[in-house]
Structures are given as C-alpha cells and as structure tokens.
Design a protein around this nucleic acid. Sequence first.
RNA 1: GUGAAUGUAGUUUAGUGGCAGAACGUCCGGUUGUGGUCCGGAUAGCCCGAGUUCGAUUCUCGGCUUUCACCCCA
Length: 385
Amino acid sequence: MNIQTVKGFRDFVGKEAQKRVKIKEIIKEQFELYGFEPAETPTIEFKEFVQSDNPNDEAVRDIFKLEDRGKRKLALRYEFTFQLKRLAKNQKLPYKRYQIGYNFRDEPIRKGRTRQFIQCDADVVGSSTKDEAECLKLGKNIFERLNTPVKIYVNNRRLMNEILVSEKIEEKNRNQVIRELDKLDKLSKKEVADNLKKFNAEKLLKIFEQSEKEFEKYNFYKEIMELKKICKTYGFKIEFKPFLARGLSYYNGIVFEIWSKELDVSLCGGGSYLVGDIQSTGITFGLEPIYLLSKIEGDRIKVQIISIGQDDESIQLAENLRKKGISVNLLLDKSIGKAMDYANSKGIEKVIFVGKEEIAKKKFRVKDMKTGKEEFLSESNVLKV
RNA sequence: GUGAAUGUAGUUUAGUGGCAGAACGUCCGGUUGUGGUCCGGAUAGCCCGAGUUCGAUUCUCGGCUUUCACCCCA
C-alpha cells in the first residue's frame, strides 16, 4: 500500500507543527483585537459557486473538482472571499469576520506553495479607508510579533486605471498591460518594455517610474493620501508602489502587499473589492511562506511530573497545575532516567519529582532542566511555576 | 499544463550490473531517586511498473515524488 502523501500535500509533526500553531495563534489574536469575529465555512462547495468570481478565468483550471454520489458537481474552496457573499447576508454592517483554515488549489507546487495551504483572512464588508488602515496595522503588528521585518506597499487600482485611460490604452488591452506592469518587480525594465510594445504601451514605463510627487495630479491619488494620513495616526508608514496590481482579481480600489525585508517574498496581501454591491476590504496571510521565513518557535510543554511510585499524588498535582493553565506531561511508569531523557528531548522546562521523600516532607523537588538546579517547593509554590 | 533535474533506512547521505555501508534518530541494556556525555546491542532502506539481462537498486522506457524555470497566482 502506498502511504506517500499526494503531490503538494504533506504532514507536519513535532516542532514544525508547534511552530505553525504558534503563528496561527498570533494571527488570530490580532484579528480578534481589531474586532473581527470568527466564521467557519464548508471546504466543499458547488463548483459553480466556487468559480463564480471569475467565470471565464483560467483560475478555474486550478480548482480541485469533485463529484458526490448524487452526481453533484462540487469543488474544494480555493479561497475564502467568495463565501462572504453568503456569510454577509443579513449581517449588520460593517460585518467583520476572520477565518483561518485550509484552501486548495490544483496547481504547480514550489517551495512555500503547496496544494493544500492555510490562509488567514480578515475582511470587512461595508468598509471605509479606516478599515484599510486597520488591516495594514494589524498586519504590521503580526509581523512584529513574529520578529519578521517587513515593508508595506500600497497602490490603488482606480488610480492605475485612470492612468491607463489618460494614456489611451485600449480597453481590451488594459488587463494584459496591468499584468505586465506588475512584473516590474521580477523582470528587468527592458523585458517589461518589450512585453508592453505589443500593446503600444511602452510609454507607461516612464510614467510608472516617476517620483511619487508626479502622481499628485491624478484624481485617485487622493485615496492614497487619505490612507497614508490614517496610517500615520496609527503610527506606521506605508510605501506607494504605483505598479502593484495583485493579479487581475476583483480589487476595485486600494491594493497592498506586505513583503519581507530580508528575502524577496510576499507574505501577505489584500485590498478593497465588492461583496455584491457593498464596498469591502480584506487582508490575507499565507501561512506557508510565513512559516518558512519566521524563526519563531512554538510553545513547549512547561512541566513534567515524574511519579516515583506515588501515582495518586502525582495525578492530583498534575490536575492542580493544569487548572492553573500550566501544560503538564505526567509520566507514571517510566524509569527516572528515561523520564528525564524524555523531558530533555521534548524541551520541557521543569521536572517535578513525586516520591516518598516529597510526600514525607510535603514539598516537591522541582528541577529546572536548563540550569539543572533543584529546589524543594510546597504545593502552593509549585503552582506558581 | 510545458520543459529540465532529482529519488538509497524516520532524516542526511556513501556506493555498486552479482551480500547495500555510515551518521543522526528511534528502541533495548549498562543505570528502578535524576537528563544533555559515554559504552554495548537492536531496528529499519535502493519511489512504483514494464523492458534488456543468467542476474537490475544500478542500464532503457513509462508513471509518481521533490526541486527549478515558464504559464498563472484568490
């Protein structure tokens, strides 16, 4: 029997899994601090609904397709946003929800890009510029807590469009032109210029490479200014990047990306779009690239209790510690040498011995595994560990 | 989806057309009131299928995995 994982899918155990949980916790905490409430949605939806955002898009090719016994045409969700159409019904606006979970794409894999991946989304249905600033701020907070230095880039799709119109780029070519401009990060100017020639749009290069001041003459630049102003009040800086597009997706206003300062990787993106006809904004974190980049470590088990023939008392003590919210691993039937070895390999901070000696003294021997120091503590002091 | 490279114990890897070796890990013991060191022992592997061959882990072809590039990227 083949027990290999399927292409693009993998297991995470031990420290890897702990690290991922830790990152999710940090993200969840910030989402909640900014007033987002959780939601859960089905992983499987009607295929029609999943692809509804881009009905004629090639992205359809990336959807995992399924069929149930009732021959329904189904698909695994490949993002969260389209489900907002359903969630936001009958919600008092602004409706702010977050969701952390798996999405699936049947697409080529590479480092940091698997076919099952965790996305962490926070969206505001019924949003204003203030919400765009808040999304960016909570993003900034998250990367600070992850010890990952980042840069925040913003642009506005309306501004981009305004420029294309004023430069008389034919409407049928605009999407393709935007796509080419978006590659300015990856390709050389020459390559982008060559690609733009097809659309008679090389002149755009000069415009998009002007200093920021030159953009002030455009009407929609004022949306960038407004966002910058609010961000300043929140105490952080953003950087205007006029050719940032974020694909051809449904964005209709501000778009942004958060990039690692150390490596050339996009860690987070988002922008404003419509849910039905309600202006909305959202931010999405890809767990996989963040996991690869962040050096943060997951939480370890805090305490290990070793029973030396005193199982009842050990169980009592373990439960009392757990009531205090301290994680406890209890070992009853291992030899002490083995138990110490176990604590050591799991990186457990403290070991508590429960034996005859301790019961007689009414004090527990507590050992710090890092320093090797031991001390006798009464139960009430042990609980403060 | 296209093209290239890749695949040997759980992990990192050595090697060969004729018995596949190591390190780390794991398990057992030295050590039933003390871990990280040390010593002894054990465990487990040639991605899958077909072909060539007396014999294939090795060569050929196909599939799959992983990596890189292209395409695309919520």
